[in-house]
């Protein structure tokens, strides 16, 4: 057990919390935040596990991947927010309707 693994496990826990939020939160903005929390958890895992090199200098590949991941997350978040705003503008809803209306 090193600090790296501790951080990585924290990342997994963060992922779990985010997942719980995504499933159980009803308000869409909360859902967006929860999804981002999941993402943050994954990024934390990647960064933490990249620090396990013998030399101490972190492995650059996961860092680059996380950068890519962040940009993807930003884009997805923007799209989510755009969709939610549009839905709210059009229907006044802030939650997804419970019943699937096809």
């Amino acid at each position: 057990m090193t600090y790296a693994t501790l951080y990585a496990i924290c990342g997994v826990v963060l992922f779990g919390i985010g997942f719980y939020g995504t499933v159980f939160c009803r308000h869409l903005i909360r859902k967006v935040m929860a999804v981002n929390l999941m993402g943050a958890g994954v990024f934390l895992v990647m960064i933490a596990l990249a620090a396990r090199t013998p030399s101490g200098a972190p492995d650059p590949v996961p860092h680059a991947m996380v950068l890519t991941g962040i940009v993807v997350a930003v884009s997805a978040t923007a799209l989510m927010l755009a969709l939610i705003r549009r839905l709210h503008h059009q229907t006044g809803l802030t939650e997804l309707p419970e019943q699937m209306e096809h």
Binding site: T5, V12, F19, D59
Partner: peptide
């Protein structure tokens, strides 16, 4: 269920060797 999932994945991470080179 989520706790179980987190627990298993955490355990898996805990089994990782302390050092790894990766692609560094």
């Amino acid at each position: 269920l989520i706790a179980a999932l987190v627990g298993i994945v955490s355990y898996a991470i805990w089994t990782l060797p302390a050092q790894s080179v990766g692609l560094a």
